[in-house]
Simulated assay, not measured.
Amino acid sequence: MRRETLERHQVWLYLGAVSMGLALGSLTPGLGSTADALLWPVLALLLYATFTQVPMAALPTAFTEGRFMAAALLGNFVLLPAAVWALMQFIPENQALQLGLLLVLLVPCTDWFITFSQLGRGDATRATALTPVLLVLQLLLLPLYLWLMSDADLRVVFAPADIWPAFVVVLLPLALAVLTEVWAGRSRTGAAVVLRLGWWPVPLLAAVVLLVAVAHVGSVLADAQLLPIVLGVVALFLAISLLLSRAVASAARLNLAQGRTLAFSMGTRNSFVVLPLALALPAGWETVAVVVVMQSLLELFGMIFCLWFIPRVLFPDPRASTGEKPSRAR
């Protein structure tokens, strides 16, 4: 199997993992504590494998593409946060639901958006260069966004005694991934390891989703009535992000491949990074993690649609209608 095939069909793997996890958790409740214990190391491994695919060495290179970078930063860190704030005004007064949506919708994706950009005839090179910038800025800006938009008492919800494991699970794999990248830059063996790690995120995310379902089956079933609300918000967010990406790309005079990449960047969110924070919250806030998982699965269905919509409708190649061979991203 090719890696591209695995990534193209990943949504079905995750749905199977959720179904299996809910069945196991319901039929064997005693597995919940074991799944909860396994969840953190598997999540840390997932983040490590994911972060190794984020080229931190490309950080300076990213700023050489001034118009594309400005468009991506404006869209992801100014326009979309404003749109998220507007969407929150119509959400029921459920603080856990609101916090879950804020956590996941405010952070742009740094992993599978590269794959979707490539599959959707975007510019994978610029997508790759953009990812470390997105990762660094979201880690810095997320606390500010939450302080401005959340009605929850963040000092209680994010008490240091509860969430310090989440920071370890995020920051330790990030540090190890940077060291691995340095090793890969100096050694063929290291480069081969990074290449192999590129296969890991999809099966590891499936394992994480399965473990979350087993460990939190009660919360998942109890919060099932929230699915239509989350679905509506995710669909509206995706529609808004696509419209904004078209407007920003036109204003910045981006070419077709850059515009498509911008659309995939603005339409995808970074559930991997915020999931540890959601899982570390104190008792009573389990809904936050459920919402994050719901969003990530719904987003994948949205990306299946976007693989058709973005290159054919939102950023169509005019030569395709004249019978010429469509342009491909570099």
Rank of each mutant, 00 (worst) to 15 (best):
P132F: 10
L137P: 05
Y145V: 01
L197A: 08
F158R: 04
L148T: 06
L174G: 09
L195E: 15
L146C: 14
D151N: 08
V156Q: 13
L130P: 06
L195Y: 05
S187F: 04
P160Q: 01
L154V: 09
D151A: 00
W200R: 02
L135M: 10
V178N: 03
V182Y: 11
D153L: 14
D153W: 08
L197P: 07
D153V: 13
V170S: 06
P132Q: 12
W200A: 15
L172Q: 00
L195R: 15
L135T: 13
F167T: 05
R186I: 02
L171I: 11
D153P: 05
R196T: 13
L140H: 04
P173V: 10
D151V: 00
D162G: 04
V170W: 07
V168N: 00
V136T: 11
E181D: 13
A161E: 15
P165V: 07
L195V: 05
A184T: 02
V136R: 07
A166S: 08
A161M: 11
L130Y: 04
R186A: 12
G190C: 03
D162Y: 08
L141W: 07
S150Q: 13
A175G: 14
V194Y: 08
V156H: 07
V194D: 10
L137V: 09
L154N: 09
A152N: 05
L172V: 15
L197W: 04
E181A: 12
R188I: 00
W200G: 08
R155E: 15
P160S: 02
V157R: 02
Q138H: 13
T189R: 11
W164F: 10
V168D: 01
G190I: 03
A152E: 07
T189N: 05
W147K: 14
W199F: 14
D151I: 00
M149W: 02
V170I: 15
L137D: 05
V182M: 13
A175D: 04
I163V: 15
V182Q: 14
L141S: 09
V136E: 06
T189L: 11
L174E: 07
V133S: 12
L176W: 05
A177R: 01
P143T: 10
P132S: 12
V178W: 10
V133C: 13
A166C: 06
V170L: 14
L174A: 14
E181H: 11
V182R: 15
W183Y: 14
V178T: 04
L141T: 09
M149E: 02
V193P: 04
A177C: 03
W164C: 03
P173N: 09
W199H: 13
W200M: 15
W199L: 14
